[in-house]
């Protein structure tokens, strides 16, 4: 079955980059420019298989998005991968502590990214 990936990032460049990297999985992409839109998209597409989430975004950041997802309880099963430009350990540590399943640091290394995505997709089978 075709996987569905929600990309939550305020950068159009990152959206397109993820689309290019994810092309090999032939998955459907759902785009959101911040955490709030991300939550709306989750409500519209409850069959999402994976969320790629930026930490720093306007309106609602990545960490707050994870907290809201946890509060809602409905989407807790969906794996979230956080991405951070700064590579700050505290950001990624907090994200993981909140329930994110993995993280990537920008600039994204495709080989590492693929390994993480494949592992998450395999676990969800």
């Amino acid at each position: 079955m075709m996987k569905k990936v929600l990309i939550v990032d305020d950068s159009a460049l990152i959206h397109q980059m993820y689309k290019m990297i994810l092309m090999r999985y032939r998955c459907a992409i759902v785009a959101a420019q911040n955490g709030q839109i991300g939550l709306d998209k989750l409500a519209q597409h409850p069959d999402i298989d994976l969320v790629l989430l930026d930490i720093n975004m306007p309106v609602m950041g990545g960490l707050e998005f994870i907290k809201k997802v946890k509060e809602l309880g409905t989407y807790e099963h969906i794996p979230i991968v956080i991405s951070s430009t700064e590579g700050k350990e505290e950001d990624t540590d907090r994200g993981i502590a909140l329930g994110a399943r993995g993280y990537v640091t920008k600039p994204v290394q495709p080989s590492e990214f693929h390994a993480l995505i494949e592992a998450l997709f395999a676990a969800s089978r």
């Binding site: 950068s11 159009a12 460049l13 990152i14 397109q16 290019m20 920008k106 600039p107």
Partner: peptide
């Protein structure tokens, strides 16, 4: 991705933002 984004706008400030994003993210 970089070249597509660079030529996706005719807004000067947006062009600057895209260049910043490329240098930072890519």
């Amino acid at each position: 991705v970089a070249s597509y984004q660079l030529h996706s706008t005719l807004d000067f400030n947006e062009s600057l933002k895209i260049i910043l994003e490329i240098v930072m993210n890519l």
